[in-house]
């Protein structure tokens, strides 16, 4: 993990996001992300974060065996943090970074697949699902 982060930093990934990202990781902070951006995106196109989760994430991150993302998170962070939709510590900015940059075995998703507006909605969904 540390090496992975180092690799991403070397590539300059976090120029914009570094401060928020590390704060989130260290504190597992749970404040809401910037709701404004999501609202703007939603006003233009109604995007359903839960649907996007089903479309792009669930195949690797659903509960139970046979889901490589769930398996990896269980190994790395413990079983209580293995299932994305049960996490209480996910920050929208973190979700967005991981989706665009990838992490460990997870390859990144391109803007042609998940647009920036969709990513906002997906990140909003994952960072608030356990709170609603």
């Amino acid at each position: 993990m540390a090496r992975e982060l180092a690799e991403m930093m070397k590539a300059g990934v976090f120029r914009a996001l570094l401060v928020t990202f590390i704060t989130c990781l260290l504190l597992s902070c749970s404040e809401k992300q910037s709701v404004d951006t999501v609202a703007v995106a939603k006003a233009e196109v109604p995007i359903d974060g839960a649907e996007l989760y089903k479309q792009y994430c669930i195949a690797c991150h659903a509960e139970g065996p046979g889901h490589p993302g769930t398996m990896r998170l269980g190994i790395r962070l413990g079983e209580d943090k293995a299932v994305l939709t049960k996490r209480t510590d996910l920050q929208a900015v973190y979700v967005k970074t991981i989706v665009r940059q990838g992490i460990l075995l997870m390859p990144p998703f391109r803007p042609s697949e998940i647009s920036d507006a969709e990513l906002e909605a997906l990140a909003e969904y994952l960072s608030t699902i356990t709170k609603t």
Partner: peptide, 28 residues
């Protein structure tokens, strides 16, 4: 889960289970 994903694939049900192979080593 190995049985399950193979049985699904042979029946035309798509999944992502095989990516677990990357979990064999840390950052596979």
């Amino acid at each position: 889960p190995a049985w399950k994903y193979r049985a699904q694939l042979m029946q035309g049900i798509p999944n992502m289970a095989e990516f677990s192979i990357m979990n064999w080593v840390g950052s596979g």
